[in-house]
């Protein structure tokens, strides 16, 4: 997958996360999804399902234990998509 695909993933995540969050902060790659955006665990799990469908991949939710920031989530999706 190319650089532009990574950007596409990042943009999609930022858009969806801002839709899910009640917080008004500007989302950047370094934003912490749980603590800064106050997105509860179930909303995050549902977002993962949506990303799976968008990119037609399987993203195991246990892989989320290493994910804190938007960048880390984008990296995970990119890695899985590239390997698929």
């Amino acid at each position: 997958m190319s650089e532009s695909n990574y950007d596409e993933i990042m943009k999609l995540l930022c858009d969806r996360l801002s839709g899910l969050s009640n917080s008004s902060i500007q989302i950047t790659p370094e934003t912490n999804i749980i603590s800064q955006l106050s997105i509860d665990s179930i909303k995050l799990l549902n977002l993962i399902m949506e990303i799976e469908d968008t990119f037609d991949v399987s993203i195991p939710i246990n892989a989320l234990t290493d994910v804190q920031t938007v960048r880390e989530l984008a990296d995970l999706v990119y890695k899985i998509k590239s390997a698929s």
Binding site: M49, E52, S58, N62
Partner: peptide
């Protein structure tokens, strides 16, 4: 599931179309 260390994939509650999509993947 977490204790097992297996990969955990969720399907939409009681949604068989969704479940099959995830099985296929």
């Amino acid at each position: 599931c977490v204790l097992s260390g297996a990969d955990i994939i969720r399907f939409k509650h009681n949604d068989m179309v969704d479940m099959e999509k995830r099985l296929r993947r």
